[in-house]
Design a protein around this nucleic acid. Structure first.
Lengths: 156, 156
DNA sequence: TGGAATGTTTAGAACTACCTGAACGTTGGG
DNA sequence: CCCAACGTTCAGGTAGTTCTAAACATTCCA
């Protein structure tokens, strides 16, 4: 069964690559692997046991990852009749939220920099902070517009 | 000198806070502290010795941080006559580059997801990848437009 | 060109994140 | 209600990162 073996290896490589992508988005390593496995699942989702087999991790790691993924509303638990195991599937339409959360950092950063500006007296330092503030203020409003267009697009 | 002491403590807190902001942007911890110190410097920059004193780190850490900051074109070295120490100052107008670099991840992610799509046959998995691809493609073009507006704005 | 001051590299220590195994708690079928 | 299957929590260990100290290299001035 050389062919099957190749297939399996290829799938594993694909999974690692996708997990790497998700780490770039900001997911912790272990959570990225779980999310990637759920994305590439043949059916609608996977059970705890299937995740343990496919990823070679412990059930504690699965439990931990699910606490994060369910807590952040990216994954949900569901039951399959005839099985006592928990099953997990990816919720659709969550990518907008994931990215919106990242954009939220922009406004936090802007206000933190502004807060720093008030207690600085050196002109040189003020100038550097001002540049930083202006850049982030610009991107903050741009991101708001982008998200609005995104929501209109998906709302249709 | 209670007043001076308060001032010093306040500065240190401000520095930590700004360093935290920079970590949110993606800087590693040590590098964020150095960049924050250079931002808040009274004058145009700081010497190695000043950074060591202010941050309480070793000269090796300074050397390492500067390798990163100079390598990514965010800081430059300059000399001060009468001193044999290296001095470092923040380059102006680099924040656009910093953020552009982050946006570049968007297109890398989109193409990685597209690559995964070609070797997947499960309809459920394809659908999930497709959603991810579409979202990232949307943001990719939006970011391109945002960066163009940013460059026009600063180009003036 | 020699020597002191400074910067870089490297080997190892400390810290942090995360994972595992085991104990514990919970759930559901008989 | 009890037992077995499963999930969660927690203490401990491991891997990876980043710091430091010290050796080494470089630079600059006499």
């Amino acid at each position: 069964m050389r062919e099957r073996d190749d297939h399996r290896k290829h799938r594993a490589a694909l999974l690692d690559r996708l997990a790497g992508v998700l780490e770039q988005v900001g997911f912790p390593h272990g959570i990225a692997k779980v999310y990637a496995a759920l994305t590439l699942a043949e059916g609608e989702g996977l059970s705890t046991g299937e995740l343990i087999d496919e990823l070679g991790i412990s059930k504690a790691a699965v439990s931990n990852a699910m606490q994060f993924l369910i807590g952040t509303n990216l994954v949900e638990r569901y039951r399959v009749r005839g099985s006592r195991e928990a099953h997990y599937r990816i919720l659709k339409g969550r990518w907008g939220d994931i990215l919106a959360r990242k954009f939220a950092a922009t406004s936090r950063i802007r206000s933190a920099v502004e807060e720093a500006m008030v207690s600085i007296d050196s002109p040189a330092a003020s100038e550097r902070l001002e540049e930083m503030r202006d850049v982030y203020a610009f991107f903050e409003t741009e991101f708001e517009n982008v998200m609005q267009r995104f929501n209109e697009r998906t709302g249709r």
